[in-house]
Design a protein around this nucleic acid. Structure first.
Lengths: 348, 348
DNA sequence: GTCCCGACTGTGAGCGTTCACAGAAGCGAT
DNA sequence: ATCGCTTCTGTGAACGCTCACAGTCGGGAC
């Protein structure tokens, strides 16, 4: 008597048959479950013959350790959470991809939380959701000021790192060096002989946008070139189109546009009004989206290595997880200028 | 003697303090853990006053149920896995977003697995990875033949649905009705008076591409228009550019291009050789990427509702999870033609 | 032969929940 | 009073694993 044999509660048996558990393997191999566990974690002190028997049993039963049970007992789920905003944008999507690949290489799973709107509470809520879900750490893809700001209010029960965020001392950050990228774009145009370089910036609440502005300004003043008034866009092609309308009223001969989409809108307007690119106006973009090479004309732009950012970011996160954590660190990845046909020497 | 008080193994206490567990709440509220559990699942039979005491204790200790423990005992993690290929492409990225939002609304978490290469074994491996990770179900974003093919070899220990896959009887599918979209694009051009419509297709191994071909053919034959030879691209702007080179050698006056990127490359070539769009050649794309409105000229294209696809897909998956599963089902979402300025009446 | 040590293997407990019961009040009806 | 309900609450076990520790076994040294 004693134990009543009732139907097992568990067993994802979509096909009826119950998944083998460690005890089944142990029974088949004629050892204790502890020995099975040892084989699984290839502990050195298991006799060769025992190990082989266990391995055979594992194979025969198609046994896989239950990650949930492992997570429960170890307190680590080997899952990382990523919160991001608009993943249909090229940058965030690539960043997400980079993180996922790096996490995969580090044998971690990735859970995602996309925000529908970006502000302090949505970010906090997303992080909480991931934590509640049991992730070991969170990476916040936070290119906007609101997201960076939110970082300070995020519960710190698990390690957090930010990607693409601006300088901020609250969490470690991995990012592309926007300042350097903007500077090299600007320098490229100055070296072509343009007296100065105009700039169509991204929205003020994006730190990347501000850093590109800063890089542009720094390079201009380094070259003692006059600093023209700043034009603002919102990353969209439409806003680039509108910026172009203002630009053509000026004597600009070169413009550095803060992303490729806006550059596209700008090129479109220039074309409409018959101002040839690059003959009368040189244009540099930022991002190097796959289409950039097929713009009219093919766009000179700045390429960002998102895979590398993902790797750096993961390194920072895992370091924190293993408690050998620098409280704050900033990993910068150098961007690369890709010269195509939208830039030319200044008209004389 | 008896229990040795050793340091707790667990407790993600990054800040030192241990997370409260159910027993702590029970103790504080002066009830058993079972009662706490009942309150959490708002079971009807808990006295009002008891419930309030428990709720207060939960609040005071900032208690959150441990999802891992819940998953272990219930056998459900409330996590869904998504495997997808190139998430920097607009379509897959939007699909992923749609699924994530729908999953969120259904109170499920989403784990992702991106493939670096697409073939049977990578898909199978990705699904296995997700399953090993403990997801309750998997959605495969499988617009390519290889992915669809792989679906048959995927372990069926958890429910699987495919998104954007072609017709296939092995798993339920949610998708945009590519055939209808292609037909409406073609019809639009025919209605403008073009004698026939050429087509630049996507790669043969993409089922979406094939369905668009089929929709285009069907519409042409419905209108008794001649069927011109098919041009093939690979989705990239470059391949559209190359297709354009072949196209300008013909007497084509209208072309339906299988995605917006290729349409962009095509427009670029037409511009280079001085063939005006749409005066001498009308162009329709597919996808309606955000930039499409800023092409030169703004592109007439077919918009897909990815959010709806995500919702449908989730419905199929959850239905299977709750065992009220239709073994096979196909949920089609109707696309929408967006007319812009790349199409015009046929030249006479 | 006894002791000790290394190599290997097993046992008990516990991770934080939920499930299936069993049990304790409270209360109207007999 | 006693019974039989309903209403509410508690107990034991289980989920599948890992950790800490306690064996068992064989053989070389004394």
């Amino acid at each position: 008597m004693g134990r009543v044999s009732r139907a097992p509660r568990t067993g994802r048996g979509l096909l009826g048959q119950r998944r083998a558990v460690m005890a089944d393997v142990a029974r088949l191999a004629g050892v204790s479950y502890q020995t099975v566990s040892r084989v699984l974690h290839d502990s050195p002190d298991v006799k060769r013959s025992t190990r082989d028997r266990v391995l055979a049993a594992i194979q025969q039963l198609d046994y896989r350790p239950n990650p949930v049970a492992q997570a429960l007992v170890t307190g680590r789920s080997r899952t990382l959470g990523v919160v991001s905003f608009d993943t249909t944008l090229y940058g965030p999507a690539s960043t997400l991809l980079g993180i996922e690949q790096a996490a995969h290489d580090a044998e971690h799973a990735v859970a995602i939380a996309s925000l529908r709107a970006l502000n302090r509470s949505t970010v906090v809520e997303a992080v909480e959701r991931l934590v509640r879900q049991g992730v070991d750490g969170v990476v916040v893809v936070a290119p906007q000021r609101a997201a960076v700001d939110a970082l300070r209010h995020v519960p710190r029960v698990v390690p957090v790192v930010a990607v693409e965020a601006g300088p901020d001392d609250s969490v470690p950050v991995a990012a592309v060096d926007q300042h350097a990228g903007a500077a090299s774009a600007t320098r490229h145009l100055l070296e072509l002989g343009h007296r100065t370089v105009w700039h169509v910036a991204g929205p003020e609440d994006w730190l990347e946008a501000e850093q590109r502005v800063a890089g542009w300004r720094a390079e201009l003043s380094r070259a003692r070139a006059p600093v023209p008034p700043l034009l603002r866009g919102d990353w969209s092609a439409r806003s680039g189109y509108e910026a172009a309308q203002r630009l053509v009223e000026t004597d600009a001969t070169a413009v550095f546009v803060a992303n490729d989409q806006m550059a596209l809108g700008l090129l479109r307007y220039l074309h409409e009004v018959g101002r040839e690119t690059p003959r009368t106006l040189s244009v540099v973009g930022f991002d190097d989206i796959p289409e950039a090479a097929y713009f009219t004309p093919p766009l000179t732009t700045v390429r960002q290595d998102f895979a590398e950012v993902g790797r750096r970011c993961l390194r920072l996160l895992l370091a924190q997880l293993e408690r050998r954590s620098p409280a704050y660190e900033r990993a910068l990845v150098a961007p690369e200028l890709v010269v195509r046909r939208s830039t030319a020497a200044a008209p004389r």
